[in-house]
Simulated assay, not measured.
Amino acid sequence: MDETRVGDLMTSPMLTIGMDDNAADVGHAMREQGIKSVVAIDEDCSPTGIVTSTDFVAMAADDRRPSETPVGEYATTDVVTVDADDPVSGVAARMRENDINHLPVMDDGQVAGILTTTDLTEWFADPPQATGD
């Protein structure tokens, strides 16, 4: 049985933001880094929200000016997290059950990285090979 853990696949370090950050600044940073999600954290590095590229679509549909909009107005605040030591198989099922594509990864009570459906797709496309000792 495969024992790959979330921590083996997560992206770290990752871009984090505050809920009051300007959406235009966040959008520019996401574009520069080529990412589709960021995690909002508080002063204790605990997740308070997640902002994805889909949230920017909603902002545009609402005819909001990103330069005048805090990202917290569009962030998902019911954040589902996983632990870096969790097995990948259970996390994939959890993502499907919750219909989510991005999961903040926790380690010692703080956000340590993010796991995305892209990370899982890459892992399934090129799974680790078993080694015989």
Rank of each mutant, 00 (worst) to 15 (best):
43 E>P: 00
60 A>T: 14
81 T>H: 04
49 G>Q: 06
59 M>T: 08
79 V>N: 01
83 D>I: 05
50 I>V: 15
38 V>G: 06
63 D>E: 13
120 L>H: 06
32 E>P: 01
76 T>Q: 08
26 V>D: 05
103 L>S: 08
32 E>N: 02
12 S>T: 15
99 D>K: 12
65 R>A: 13
126 D>L: 11
38 V>T: 08
63 D>Y: 10
21 D>Q: 08
59 M>G: 05
119 D>H: 07
105 V>K: 02
64 R>I: 13
123 W>C: 08
41 I>G: 02
59 M>F: 06
93 A>Q: 10
127 P>A: 13
53 S>Y: 03
40 A>C: 14
127 P>Q: 10
27 G>P: 02
31 R>S: 10
48 T>V: 15
127 P>M: 12
96 R>T: 15
15 L>M: 11
60 A>Y: 12
43 E>A: 15
29 A>N: 04
39 V>F: 02
43 E>C: 07
113 G>Y: 05
36 K>V: 10
20 D>K: 10
31 R>E: 12
91 V>N: 05
24 A>D: 07
27 G>D: 03
106 M>S: 04
22 N>F: 09
123 W>R: 10
96 R>D: 14
91 V>Q: 02
70 P>T: 13
111 V>D: 01
98 N>M: 11
74 Y>N: 03
80 V>S: 07
121 T>A: 14
29 A>Y: 02
14 M>C: 09
32 E>H: 02
54 T>M: 03
84 A>S: 14
129 Q>E: 15
38 V>L: 05
35 I>D: 03
105 V>P: 02
71 V>Q: 00
71 V>N: 00
38 V>S: 06
100 I>A: 00
42 D>A: 04
42 D>Q: 01
56 F>S: 04
12 S>W: 06
122 E>F: 08
19 M>P: 00
120 L>V: 13
96 R>V: 15
97 E>G: 11
33 Q>E: 14
42 D>S: 03
41 I>P: 03
77 T>D: 06
59 M>D: 08
119 D>Q: 05
110 Q>R: 12
52 T>F: 04
101 N>G: 15
54 T>K: 00
14 M>E: 05
45 C>W: 00
51 V>M: 05
41 I>Y: 01
85 D>Y: 05
99 D>H: 11
47 P>N: 06
